[in-house]
């Protein structure tokens, strides 16, 4: 049953994680792989573009975190409706990644975790920390 929750007072104070492109020094091969994944997200997904920075942080962490788990084959814990919504986007993302990027199939768990961590960093950079969108820090919706 839904209930009113207190406003998240920490909203606008979400911490900055990156001050420059976290993939700037990455080797070309990994970089290209991350770009392929990044490109799919940017062309096809909308979840990364919630209107406020604190929401983007949660969306990116939730969905990309679960996508990594799904790709690796780990159990995903879903305890709230909002988790479930992350999971839904994660399932579709994992499927589309797998269908498009055959190289993912040849990766082990650690490799997958690494590349998904890089991807997460990159998406955070593009949509939050390096974003030029001046409305991300607006306090209210």
């Amino acid at each position: 049953m839904a209930k009113k929750e207190k406003k998240d007072i920490a909203r606008a104070n979400y911490p900055k994680l990156y001050t420059s492109d976290p993939l700037a020094d990455l080797d070309a091969d990994t970089r290209e792989k991350v770009s392929e994944l990044e490109n799919y997200i940017m062309k096809n997904c909308l979840w990364q573009f919630n209107s406020r920075g604190w929401d983007r942080r949660k969306q990116n962490a939730g969905i990309l975190g679960m996508t990594a788990q799904l790709l690796i084959g780990e159990d995903v814990e879903i305890s709230t409706a909002i988790d479930k919504c992350y999971w839904v986007d994660a399932v579709l993302l994992a499927r589309n990644f797998t269908a498009r990027c055959a190289w993912l199939g040849g990766m082990g768990a650690e490799e997958l975790r690494t590349i998904m961590t890089k991807l997460h960093a990159r998406i955070d950079w593009l949509t939050i920390d390096g974003s030029l969108n001046e409305e991300l820090t607006v306090q209210n919706y």
Partner: peptide, 11 residues
């Protein structure tokens, strides 16, 4: 989402 915990799914 904030007040009632209803998730937002963009489609």
């Amino acid at each position: 989402r904030a007040r009632y915990g209803i998730p937002r799914l963009d489609i």
